[in-house]
Simulated scan of single mutants.
Amino acid sequence: MELVSYRYHIIPILGIFSFNLLFSQYDPRFNPFDWITITETGAITSISEGYSYIYFGTEKGGVLRYHIYANEMDISLTMAQGLSSNVIQSVHFDFDTGILWIGTDTGLNYSHMREGGWTHIRKRDIGGRNLKIHQIGSTKNNLWLRSNNQYIKLDHVSGILISIMSFPDEENINWSASFSSERVMLPEPCDNYFMMDGWIYNNGYLIDPHGRDKFITVFYSSRYGDIWLGINDGVILKGDFHMETFYPIHFGLSDLNVSALLKSQDGFWIGGKSTPPQGITFYDHRQHYFKSHEFDININMSPQKIYSVLNVNNEFWFGGSMGILVYNEKKDFWR
C-alpha cells in the first residue's frame, strides 16, 4: 500500500493511501505534481544528470530527483506523473534534445517536459517482451539501449526503432550510469573523502552507521565535480569535491504497507503492517526529508505492525500488534 497524496488539499489535512489507485496514463485535469506517490525505493539502479536535476532510477520507487542548484531533493517521478511503472531499470537525460528517457520493466518512457506528458513505448515495439534495459545512452543523432547482449538503436526524438545490433555503429555514446552487481571501487581522490554520519568505506566495501554491510550499485561523477553513489538499500551518498566529504540522503518509506498516519507540526509520522515489520518513518513534506526508525537497529523498539499513532504531551504513541511504542522527539528516545 503506497502513500498517495493530493498536494494542495490533502497533505495539509491528513494524507490518503490506497491500493493501486493511480494508473500510468496522465490525467490532463491535473498538473504533473497535483498527485504524488510516496513509497519505498529499493536499490538505486541508474543515475543521469540533466539541466537542473540529478535523476536516480530506483528498484521500486520511480525516479528520484535532486535539484542541483537548490541542493535538495524534490518530488519524485512515479506513476502519479504518468510513468508506466515505478520499477526503473535505467534513466537517461539527453542534453541535445532535452528529453528525459526512462526504461521500466514495461518498456520505455520519454517526455520533453521531463515532469508530465509521458509517451510510452512497449517492449515488443523495440526489442521483444523479454527486453531488459540495462543502460541508456545518446549521441547527437540517435538514442541507444543496452540490453543483455545486444544494442538497440532508436530515433532520439520519437523513440522509433532503427536497428538492433551486437555492437554500436557509433562512437562517443554518452551513457547513463548503470547498475553494477560487482564491487565498485572508488577512484582517487574520492576514495579518501570523509564519510559523514558514521558511514565507512574501505577498498570497495561499505558499512552503514549501524554496522550493516551495504554495497554501491551505481557510481556517477557530475559535470560540476560532485560524486554520486547509489546504494543497494536506496540511500544516496553525495560526494562534495570542495569539502571532500560524502553525506547520506534518505528518501522513501520504511514500510510500504501503510496502516497509520499522523500529521504533526513538523511533518508526518507513518507506520505500516508489512511482514516482517520494517519500521516507522518521519516525513517532512516541506523539505522532502525522510528519517527512518527501523526496528532492527533500535533496541527499545520491538518489531511489530503499527495500527495507530497519537500525539500525547509532546510524545508520539504508536499502537501496534504487540503493544505501545512511545517516542520522545526532543530526546530522540524510544521506550
Rank of each mutant, 00 (worst) to 15 (best):
V157Y: 15
M113V: 08
R212M: 00
S163N: 15
G198R: 06
N130M: 10
N149Q: 10
D191K: 07
H112T: 14
S163V: 10
L229W: 01
Y110E: 05
E182W: 02
K132H: 09
S158C: 12
D155H: 15
M113Y: 15
D169V: 15
K238M: 06
E115V: 05
R212D: 03
D96W: 04
D125P: 00
Y205Q: 14
N149K: 11
F215D: 01
R114A: 07
A177R: 02
D197C: 03
Y151H: 14
M185Y: 04
R129C: 00
N232S: 13
I152R: 07
I133H: 11
R223S: 03
N172I: 01
S222P: 00
D240P: 04
G117S: 10
F215T: 05
P209V: 08
S221T: 05
L100Q: 09
H156L: 07
H210M: 04
G234E: 09
H156T: 08
I231N: 10
L100Y: 13
G198P: 01
T217P: 03
I99V: 12
I207S: 07
E171M: 13
I207G: 01
F215C: 01
N149D: 11
I236Q: 01
M113F: 10
I200C: 13
F215V: 00
T106L: 13
S222F: 03
W101S: 04
R223D: 01
D191V: 00
K140N: 13
D208Y: 09
G117Y: 06
L161S: 05
S180R: 14
N172G: 02
D155I: 12
K238I: 06
T106R: 13
D233Q: 11
M196I: 03
G117R: 07
K214F: 05
G98T: 11
G98C: 08
C190W: 01
N192V: 01
G128D: 10
N174P: 01
I152Q: 03
M196P: 00
G98I: 12
E115P: 00
A177M: 03
H112E: 12
I162H: 15
I136V: 15
D233A: 09
Y224R: 11
N174Q: 14
E115Y: 10
I164S: 05
N172R: 14
A177H: 05
N203W: 01
N203Q: 14
F215M: 05
D169T: 15
Q150L: 03
M196E: 12
Y193T: 00
I102V: 14
I207L: 11
N192R: 13
V157H: 15
G128P: 08
I173F: 10
N141I: 10
S138T: 14
G107K: 05
L108P: 06
V235Y: 04
I164P: 06
I126W: 02
L143I: 09
L229R: 07
I126Y: 02
S158G: 12
P189Y: 04
S222I: 03
D105K: 08
P168D: 15
K132C: 07
F179H: 15
